[in-house]
Amino acid sequence: MGLYEILFWFLTVMALGCALGVILSRNPISSVLFLIATFFAISGHYILMNAQFLAIVNIIVYAGAIMVLFLFVIMLMNLNADTEPQKNRLIQLAGVISGGILFLVILGALRNVPVASLERTNTGIGLIKNLGKVLFTQFVLPFEISSVLFLSAMIGAIVIGRKE
């Protein structure tokens, strides 16, 4: 078991463990922190797969911007473990079971997927230069169109967020 494998299993366990932490911890703040940790683990996986740029973006955008926004909101509302309403045990159990069944069903369906091993060599496609090239040639239309999305989101902030 080389360093690569050790890193893989470490990051996998960390991602799954922190993800469970997100849904199980009672305090919303620790949920957020667990989620950030999950994102870090996922970024680690990105680096393992030579997607360096995405790994950085993931941390900057998700952990850095989006999750901070979440934290802001949670702190603004002053939510903590005491105010957090808890669902009934039975319902939680039902949630776990149905999620688990979904997992098992997909697992059962996909167990025969042909095995393809990911090469450990660095192909360089995850570098910012390559991605930029693809983004601004092949994907230029969706890139431009997504501006409409942001305009809508902006309007949303105005329409919904502003006090009348």
């Binding site: 809508s152 309007i155 949303g156 329409v159 919904i160």
Partner: peptide
Amino acid sequence: LLMLFIGIEIMSIPQYILAGSDK
């Protein structure tokens, strides 16, 4: 499929806002 995804989102996000517009 990317255009499908973006198209659906462009259509959906304004709807979330419009649904909540009567404040």
